[in-house]
């Protein structure tokens, strides 16, 4: 006698998690996707497994510590060839706030191939589900052929801290944002025509400290949390802008003029004299106010 499998039985896609030394934020949120109905991965036809060899989708959290590496690679070797690997949170992609530590051996891609990234610190459960859905779509495309399709998701208006947005028009190049950024996500470059800022969403931990200290509101936190993307696009996930140089009206030297937002923050109601200062370089400003450039 043999038991016949039902033709239409739906076999759940199995998810397996590896923690490579995370702060447990992503892991606790993943636990939510196994426990809370609203965010349950079962709505995507998935189920968690505790056996690496059953992994259809592999979810990896943490910056990959030196100590965990051997165990992570051992578990990875047990997983099937055709799984889809997902980096959860920014740590596996860039190290996040733990970058450049002697004890961290990331990014994960140095050791094993990654297919999908879900930035966030930690990503909210909605973002985890979106990323897992993207992994499922990639899995389907690989099996059936064709390109994976990115599905639109319902957007809620919850005030979550998402992607940072940069407005070069109000930036005064003070660089306090880079100074306070724990994740090293912000870079300034001085070019021919101006100063440009680049912020990498795969390093950013969405703490919002840059926008808190930004004197002119050039950096602001948006509610856009849907940041999952194919790992191949990791370095395209940036916010960028250039503050152009303008010639000093006194000597013609290229300077970054003070934005109106800064004058407003400093003087409340700037008068014409103050307005004139913003187009002068430091040397010309000193010339105008104390007669000689200060040494």
């Amino acid at each position: 006698m043999h038991i016949q499998a039902e033709e239409n039985a739906i076999v759940p896609v199995r998810l397996f998690r590896i923690n490579t030394g995370s702060c447990n934020g992503c892991d606790v949120e993943l636990a939510v996707t196994s426990a809370v109905t609203e965010f349950d991965v079962e709505q995507l036809g998935c189920r968690y497994t505790e056996a690496a060899r059953e992994a259809d989708i592999l979810l990896i959290t943490g910056p990959l510590t030196v100590r965990a590496r051997e165990e992570v690679l051992r578990l990875y070797a047990e997983t099937p060839q055709d799984k889809v690997t997902v980096a959860v949170g920014v740590c596996p992609v860039s190290g996040g706030v733990f970058r450049d530590s002697y004890a961290v051996d990331g990014p994960l891609e140095r050791h094993l191939p990654v297919d999908v990234n879900i930035p966030g610190c930690p990503p909210r459960p909605q973002a985890l589900l979106a990323g897992i859905a993207e992994a499922l779509e990639l899995r389907r495309a690989r099996r059936e052929g064709g390109a994976p399709v990115r599905r639109a998701l319902p957007v809620d208006n919850f005030p979550a801290r998402g992607r940072l947005s940069y407005d070069a028009g109000s930036c005064v190049d003070c660089r306090i944002c880079r100074h306070v950024c724990a994740a090293g996500a912000i870079r300034f470059e001085e070019g021919e025509t101006g100063v440009s800022l680049t912020l990498w969403h795969n390093s950013c931990v969405f703490c919002g400290l840059c926008s808190h200290y930004c004197p002119t509101g050039a950096l602001s936190v948006t509610g856009d949390w849907r940041l999952d993307h194919p790992a191949a696009d990791a370095f395209r996930q940036v916010e960028r802008g250039e503050v152009p140089y303008a010639p000093c009206v006194g000597c013609g030297e290229p300077i970054i003029p003070a934005a109106p937002q800064l004058l407003h923050a400093a003087f409340r109601r700037p008068n014409p004299d103050i307005e004139r200062l913003k187009s002068l370089c430091p040397a010309c400003r000193q010339q105008m106010s104390i007669g000689v450039p200060r040494r």
Binding site: T65, V66, S101, Y102, A103, V104
Partner: peptide, 11 residues
């Protein structure tokens, strides 16, 4: 122990 050692004192 040590799997989650990220070198915090150093960082």
């Amino acid at each position: 122990p040590g799997q989650v050692h990220r070198g915090m004192e150093h960082l």
